[in-house]
Each structure stands twice: as C-alpha cells, then as structure tokens.
Amino acid sequence: MLIFPLKPQQASTFSVAWDHLFYFLTAITVFFSALIFAAIFIFAIKYRRRSKDEIPRQIEGNLKLELIWTIIPALLCVVMFVWASRLFIENSIPPAASTEVFVVAKQWMWKVQHPEGPREINDLHVPVGVPIKLTMTSEDVIHDFAVPAFRIKRDVVPGMYSTEWFEATSTGRFHLFCDQYCGMGHSHMVGWIDVMPQDEYARWLTSQMQAEPMAAAGQKLFNQLGCDSCHAQTGPKGPSLRGIVGQTIRMQNGQTRLVDDAFLREAIIDPQPIAGYPNVMPTFQGQVSEDQILQLIAYIKSLGGPPERKGTKP
C-alpha cells in the first residue's frame, strides 16, 4: 500500500476518456524528456573537455536535422490538438436526457437545488448511471465547480449561467472543490458528491419531506412578485409565457433571440424590449435572489403547451 495515491479515482464516463488522453500526453512527455536527458548525459560525458586548449571541430548546423525536429513535433502536436479538441467538444454538450440540477455558488458555499425540490449545501446527491446537467451561477465572485474523480471543472461566473455535465459510473462519495480562488474561505469551499444507486436515490428524493418542487416554489414567487398581473394568459400587458422555452422571438430592435435559461434570467434582471409589446416590464434586479430566479425559470419552463402569443416562431 502506497502512502499516497498515484491516480485520482475514476468515477465518470468522461474520466475514462480523459485518462486515455492523459496517458498519451504523459507518454510523449516521458519519451522526449528521456531523449533530451540521455542526449545531455551522453554528450556531456563523451565530449568532455580533455585539455585546456582543446578546440573542437566546428559544425554550422544541419538543415535536414532542423526540418526533422520541427516536423515531427509539429505532427505530434496536430495529433494532440485533434484528440483533445474532439474530446472537449464531444463533452461540451450534455445528453438530451440529462437530469437537471441547479447550483448557486456564494462566498463560501455551494447551494444546490433539485427540480423535485430538495435543497442541499456543499453536497450533491445524484443517481449513478444517469447523465446530470448542472446549471450554475454565482451570487458574488467567480467560483469553480470541480470534481476530480469525474475530471470535470467549470468556472461559475456571476451574471451568467454556465453548465457542465457528468455521468457517474460508480457509487460513493467524491470531493467537490472550488478551483477558482474566491477570497478568504476559498479552501473551505469544498463539498461532496454522493453517487447513489438509482433506487436508493429515488428513496432519498422522496424522503426529503418538506421539499417543494422548484416549479411550485417558482409559481408562488410568480404570484407574490406580481408577475401574473401582466403575464397571466389573459393579461393584456405582457406576453404569455406558455410554451416559450426553445422558441425564437423577435426583439424590438429586430434581432431574434432563442429563449433559454440565460435569456429568461436576463428577461427578469434586465428586460429588453420585445417586438409587439409595450415596454413596461420592470427590472427585478436586487429583488430576487439567484436561487429564486432559478425557481421562476423552472416555473416558466413547466408551463408547457403550444405557444399562445404573437411574434414567436418555432
């Protein structure tokens, strides 16, 4: 038994693919380092100075060699670039069937909300074998959601949503670190990912008694904040929000925007004029927290049905 591990745990689908790339890069590093070290040692010993006034034969250079040691590394670089970029791109889009979880970071803790309602702090329970998509934002400075066992990491930036995803392949507890320096408590901003068997996870979800689903909490907020006075189906002032998610809408300045999480967040914090409506939506910046915005969004997303408004196109 070693006193320290030499390899991080491998607990997600991505970590397997990542490790292959890492081994390849390590092999290249070891090979070229060994080559240079060996050359240095051999030359230093074989061609050591034997007399004080020794003048060796002079060699100007060698074009063929220069080409060889430019082209071979360049080709290897192309291989690394293509391999790593493909892996990055493939992994940047979460599978369509992902379960969503929402993360709000603040100095110095992780707040997690599950759509079904449970909320956690510095802890995230997930089922094994299910792709999980995290939608993350920060209330203050930049943080970073990193899980070494899954080989994932993504900055959590105030004022925007960033996403990352993973599919755990083994159950257990894995470290969650904040990897972006975020002030005094940075090194205390650690938590755990609890990967559970699927049935156990289902029991865990239902055992969180008081939990209110995010959409339901969002609906309450929607009424409390008076959104419904303008956005009720019959309301004259604002557009109906039914079925808008995923639609493309026209703004007053002629641009079109896709309605996604980021757009909805912006519509609440910093509303922009939309074609066909009076420009009356007030800003809610400072009145709703990032957690509440996520709940409002969950509610708006839960309003299914065909879009019932002018100006949208699929």
Binding site: L21, I28, I152, Q180
Partner: peptide
C-alpha cells in the same frame, strides 16, 4: 512538455487551477 497538457483543451479541464 507539461505545457502541452494545458494547451490540450480536454486535458486542461481537469488540470486547470490545480
């Protein structure tokens, strides 16, 4: 050579800021 790990987009995900 270890810089190449960090220039590789996918490898950098795990290694960045460590």
């Amino acid at each position: 050579l270890t810089g190449l790990f960090l220039a590789s987009m996918a490898a950098d995900i795990h290694l960045h800021d460590t």
